[in-house]
Simulated scan of single mutants.
Amino acid sequence: MRINESFGYLINLTARNMKKVLEEEIKKYGITTSQWIVLKVLEEEDNLTQAEVAKKLSGDRATAGAVIDRLIKKGLIYRNQCENDRRANRVRISDHGRELAERICIEAVKCNEKALRGFRNEEVKQLFTYLYRINNNLDINNM
Protein backbone atom coordinates (compact mmCIF):
# COMPACT_ATOMS: atom_id res chain seq x y z
CA MET A 1 0.00 0.00 0.00
CA ARG A 2 1.25 3.47 -0.88
CA ILE A 3 0.96 6.22 1.74
CA ASN A 4 -1.59 8.18 -0.31
CA GLU A 5 -3.75 5.02 -0.39
CA SER A 6 -3.88 4.87 3.42
CA PHE A 7 -7.23 5.95 4.84
CA GLY A 8 -5.61 7.10 8.10
CA TYR A 9 -3.04 9.20 6.26
CA LEU A 10 -5.67 10.79 4.02
CA ILE A 11 -8.06 11.67 6.82
CA ASN A 12 -5.21 13.08 8.92
CA LEU A 13 -3.99 15.15 5.96
CA THR A 14 -7.52 16.46 5.43
CA ALA A 15 -7.88 17.42 9.10
CA ARG A 16 -4.48 19.19 9.10
CA ASN A 17 -5.36 21.09 5.93
CA MET A 18 -8.70 22.21 7.34
CA LYS A 19 -6.98 23.33 10.55
CA LYS A 20 -4.37 25.31 8.55
CA VAL A 21 -7.04 27.09 6.52
CA LEU A 22 -9.08 27.97 9.60
CA GLU A 23 -6.03 29.08 11.61
CA GLU A 24 -5.04 31.41 8.78
CA GLU A 25 -8.52 32.97 8.81
CA ILE A 26 -8.78 33.39 12.59
CA LYS A 27 -5.27 34.55 13.43
CA LYS A 28 -6.52 38.14 13.01
CA TYR A 29 -8.56 37.53 16.19
CA GLY A 30 -5.46 36.51 18.16
CA ILE A 31 -6.79 33.04 18.86
CA THR A 32 -5.93 29.48 17.84
CA THR A 33 -8.28 26.74 16.68
CA SER A 34 -7.73 24.93 20.01
CA GLN A 35 -8.80 28.04 21.89
CA TRP A 36 -11.77 28.61 19.61
CA ILE A 37 -13.10 25.09 20.08
CA VAL A 38 -13.09 25.55 23.87
CA LEU A 39 -14.94 28.85 23.41
CA LYS A 40 -17.43 27.09 21.14
CA VAL A 41 -18.01 24.32 23.69
CA LEU A 42 -18.66 26.92 26.39
CA GLU A 43 -20.86 28.96 24.08
CA GLU A 44 -23.03 25.87 23.53
CA GLU A 45 -22.98 24.70 27.17
CA ASP A 46 -21.62 27.17 29.70
CA ASN A 47 -20.51 26.65 33.30
CA LEU A 48 -18.60 23.38 32.84
CA THR A 49 -15.75 21.96 34.88
CA GLN A 50 -12.35 21.60 33.24
CA ALA A 51 -12.87 17.83 33.21
CA GLU A 52 -16.22 18.24 31.43
CA VAL A 53 -14.63 20.51 28.82
CA ALA A 54 -11.86 17.95 28.25
CA LYS A 55 -14.40 15.13 27.89
CA LYS A 56 -16.47 17.09 25.34
CA LEU A 57 -13.28 17.64 23.32
CA SER A 58 -12.18 14.00 23.70
CA GLY A 59 -8.97 15.34 25.23
CA ASP A 60 -7.11 15.27 28.49
CA ARG A 61 -7.55 17.62 31.45
CA ALA A 62 -4.01 19.01 31.31
CA THR A 63 -4.32 20.14 27.69
CA ALA A 64 -7.78 21.58 28.31
CA GLY A 65 -6.42 23.33 31.41
CA ALA A 66 -3.61 24.98 29.46
CA VAL A 67 -6.05 26.26 26.82
CA ILE A 68 -8.46 27.44 29.53
CA ASP A 69 -5.62 29.33 31.28
CA ARG A 70 -4.77 31.14 28.02
CA LEU A 71 -8.41 32.07 27.44
CA ILE A 72 -8.72 33.42 30.99
CA LYS A 73 -5.64 35.63 30.41
CA LYS A 74 -7.32 36.97 27.27
CA GLY A 75 -10.52 37.74 29.20
CA LEU A 76 -12.57 35.38 27.04
CA ILE A 77 -13.61 33.06 29.86
CA TYR A 78 -13.42 33.08 33.63
CA ARG A 79 -13.13 30.46 36.34
CA ASN A 80 -15.14 30.10 39.55
CA GLN A 81 -14.79 27.57 42.33
CA CYS A 82 -17.59 25.00 42.48
CA GLU A 83 -19.94 25.59 45.37
CA ASN A 84 -20.33 21.90 46.27
CA ASP A 85 -16.74 20.76 45.51
CA ARG A 86 -13.97 23.16 46.46
CA ARG A 87 -11.40 21.08 44.54
CA ALA A 88 -13.17 21.72 41.23
CA ASN A 89 -13.62 24.89 39.22
CA ARG A 90 -16.24 25.82 36.68
CA VAL A 91 -15.44 27.86 33.60
CA ARG A 92 -17.81 30.30 31.95
CA ILE A 93 -17.58 32.25 28.75
CA SER A 94 -17.44 36.03 29.03
CA ASP A 95 -19.55 38.34 26.89
CA HIS A 96 -16.43 39.19 24.86
CA GLY A 97 -15.68 35.47 24.47
CA ARG A 98 -19.23 34.77 23.28
CA GLU A 99 -19.00 37.59 20.71
CA LEU A 100 -15.64 36.31 19.48
CA ALA A 101 -16.90 32.72 19.26
CA GLU A 102 -19.79 33.89 17.08
CA ARG A 103 -17.46 35.82 14.73
CA ILE A 104 -15.06 32.90 14.44
CA CYS A 105 -17.96 30.51 13.83
CA ILE A 106 -18.64 32.45 10.63
CA GLU A 107 -15.03 31.76 9.55
CA ALA A 108 -15.42 28.06 10.45
CA VAL A 109 -18.57 27.80 8.34
CA LYS A 110 -16.67 29.34 5.40
CA CYS A 111 -13.85 26.81 5.90
CA ASN A 112 -16.36 23.94 5.90
CA GLU A 113 -18.02 25.33 2.78
CA LYS A 114 -14.65 25.57 1.04
CA ALA A 115 -13.80 21.97 1.97
CA LEU A 116 -17.18 20.69 0.80
CA ARG A 117 -17.38 22.75 -2.39
CA GLY A 118 -18.89 20.69 -5.20
CA PHE A 119 -20.60 18.20 -2.89
CA ARG A 120 -24.36 17.81 -3.10
CA ASN A 121 -26.35 18.01 0.18
CA GLU A 122 -27.03 14.28 0.19
CA GLU A 123 -23.30 13.59 -0.29
CA VAL A 124 -22.46 15.80 2.70
CA LYS A 125 -25.05 13.97 4.84
CA GLN A 126 -23.60 10.63 3.74
CA LEU A 127 -20.05 11.78 4.48
CA PHE A 128 -21.08 12.78 8.01
CA THR A 129 -22.79 9.41 8.46
CA TYR A 130 -19.59 7.64 7.43
CA LEU A 131 -17.38 9.79 9.67
CA TYR A 132 -19.65 9.25 12.68
CA ARG A 133 -19.59 5.50 12.01
CA ILE A 134 -15.79 5.45 11.71
CA ASN A 135 -15.43 7.41 14.95
CA ASN A 136 -17.84 5.06 16.73
CA ASN A 137 -15.87 2.07 15.42
CA LEU A 138 -12.66 3.55 16.83
CA ASP A 139 -14.07 4.84 20.14
CA ILE A 140 -12.15 2.96 22.81
CA ASN A 141 -15.09 3.36 25.20
CA ASN A 142 -17.21 1.20 22.85
CA MET A 143 -14.68 -1.63 22.51
Rank of each mutant, 00 (worst) to 15 (best):
residue 47 N to L: 06
residue 75 G to T: 08
residue 90 R to Q: 01
residue 107 E to Y: 10
residue 69 D to C: 01
residue 49 T to P: 02
residue 100 L to C: 03
residue 82 C to L: 14
residue 93 I to H: 04
residue 111 C to G: 11
residue 51 A to Q: 15
residue 61 R to G: 10
residue 47 N to P: 00
residue 44 E to D: 13
residue 36 W to S: 10
residue 68 I to F: 02
residue 96 H to N: 13
residue 99 E to C: 07
residue 85 D to A: 03
residue 43 E to H: 15
residue 102 E to V: 13
residue 63 T to G: 06
residue 48 L to E: 00
residue 36 W to M: 12
residue 64 A to H: 09
residue 41 V to M: 00
residue 100 L to E: 04
residue 33 T to N: 14
residue 99 E to L: 11
residue 66 A to H: 15
residue 38 V to H: 00
residue 84 N to G: 11
residue 63 T to F: 11
residue 91 V to W: 02
residue 42 L to S: 04
residue 52 E to Q: 09
residue 70 R to M: 03
residue 100 L to W: 09
residue 36 W to C: 03
residue 69 D to E: 12
residue 86 R to H: 11
residue 48 L to F: 07
residue 36 W to V: 08
residue 68 I to P: 07
residue 29 Y to F: 06
residue 37 I to K: 05
residue 64 A to T: 07
residue 44 E to H: 13
residue 66 A to D: 15
residue 71 L to T: 12
residue 64 A to L: 10
residue 75 G to E: 08
residue 80 N to F: 06
residue 64 A to M: 01
residue 93 I to S: 06
residue 45 E to C: 07
residue 65 G to D: 07
residue 88 A to I: 03
residue 51 A to L: 13
residue 32 T to R: 06
residue 34 S to I: 03
residue 66 A to F: 15
residue 79 R to L: 10
residue 65 G to S: 02
residue 45 E to I: 09
residue 39 L to H: 09
residue 40 K to I: 09
residue 97 G to R: 00
residue 46 D to F: 03
residue 81 Q to E: 08
residue 61 R to N: 15
residue 48 L to C: 06
residue 35 Q to C: 04
residue 113 E to C: 14
residue 40 K to E: 11
residue 81 Q to H: 06
residue 35 Q to H: 10
residue 105 C to E: 15
residue 35 Q to V: 02
residue 62 A to R: 12
residue 110 K to A: 08
residue 75 G to H: 05
residue 54 A to Y: 05
residue 72 I to K: 02
residue 51 A to D: 14
residue 58 S to A: 15
residue 107 E to P: 12
residue 38 V to I: 04
residue 29 Y to N: 01
residue 30 G to K: 01
residue 68 I to D: 01
residue 111 C to W: 03
residue 53 V to W: 09
residue 73 K to Y: 03
residue 86 R to E: 14
residue 97 G to V: 10
residue 81 Q to L: 01
residue 70 R to T: 10
residue 40 K to A: 15
residue 35 Q to I: 01
residue 63 T to R: 14
residue 95 D to G: 13
residue 64 A to V: 08
residue 90 R to N: 01
residue 92 R to G: 05
